[in-house]
Computed example of a mutant assay.
Amino acid sequence: MLTRLAPALLLAAGSAIAAPGGKIDALDAGTYVCELPGDAAGAAGIRQPDAAFDIVNANTYRTATGRGAYLLTGDTLVMTSGPKNGQRFHRISDRFLRLIGPDGQDGPLRCIRRVVNNG
């Protein structure tokens, strides 16, 4: 009887790990600086300081106006509370996000995790 239950228990455990939209993940802690594209005659990017945020830990972010929570499933980051509540981002790479527009497509705003050489 126990040998018949083991596969059923494993299947149940596997489905609990899965989430709609993909695997639940977390962003690396650090500051994400955001910018809009520049043009050929000037800077490559135009900083948007009001859009910047810090990832504090596995589910919390902070801005100049307060703190909130986020959920990262697959490559979709959703700000679930706080000053950015409702904003959605597409994770392009571990350090690069694009704000998703109301049409569901990647918008022009990009946020990059700051490291020593891009501060």
Rank of each mutant, 00 (worst) to 15 (best):
T3C: 02
T3E: 12
R4N: 11
L5W: 08
L5F: 12
A6R: 13
P7L: 09
A8D: 07
A8N: 06
A8R: 05
L9M: 15
L9V: 15
A12F: 14
A12Y: 11
G14K: 04
A16F: 12
A16Q: 12
A16T: 13
I17D: 01
I17M: 10
A18M: 13
A18F: 12
P20L: 14
G21V: 09
G22A: 10
K23R: 12
D25C: 01
A26I: 00
L27Q: 08
D28N: 14
D28C: 03
D28I: 07
D28K: 15
D28P: 08
G30K: 10
G30D: 13
T31Y: 03
Y32G: 04
Y32D: 00
Y32S: 08
Y32F: 15
E35F: 08
E35N: 11
L36I: 01
L36A: 13
L36M: 13
L36N: 10
L36K: 13
P37V: 10
P37G: 14
P37H: 11
G38W: 10
D39T: 11
D39Y: 00
D39C: 06
A40G: 05
A41K: 07
A41F: 12
G42Y: 04
G42Q: 05
A43K: 12
G45A: 15
I46Q: 11
R47W: 11
P49L: 05
P49R: 08
D50L: 12
A51I: 04
A52C: 14
A52G: 10
F53W: 09
F53Y: 12
F53M: 04
N57M: 04
N57W: 01
N57E: 04
N59M: 03
N59P: 03
Y61N: 09
R62F: 03
T63G: 02
T65I: 14
G66M: 08
G68R: 05
G68N: 02
A69R: 15
Y70S: 09
L71H: 06
L71K: 13
L72Q: 01
T73F: 04
T73L: 10
T76A: 04
V78C: 06
V78Q: 14
T80D: 05
S81V: 08
G82Y: 08
G82E: 06
P83T: 02
P83F: 01
K84E: 00
K84C: 02
K84S: 04
K84M: 15
G86P: 07
Q87R: 11
R88W: 03
F89V: 01
R91H: 04
R91E: 09
I92Y: 11
I92Q: 05
D94F: 11
F96L: 12
L97T: 00
L97S: 01
L99H: 05
P102H: 03
D103R: 06
D103A: 10
G104D: 01
G104E: 03
Q105K: 15
D106E: 12
D106F: 02
G107L: 06
P108S: 11
P108R: 07
L109H: 04
L109C: 01
R110A: 15
C111H: 04
I112V: 15
R113K: 15
R114D: 08
V115A: 09
N117S: 09
N117I: 05
N117R: 07
N118Y: 04
G119R: 11
G119T: 05
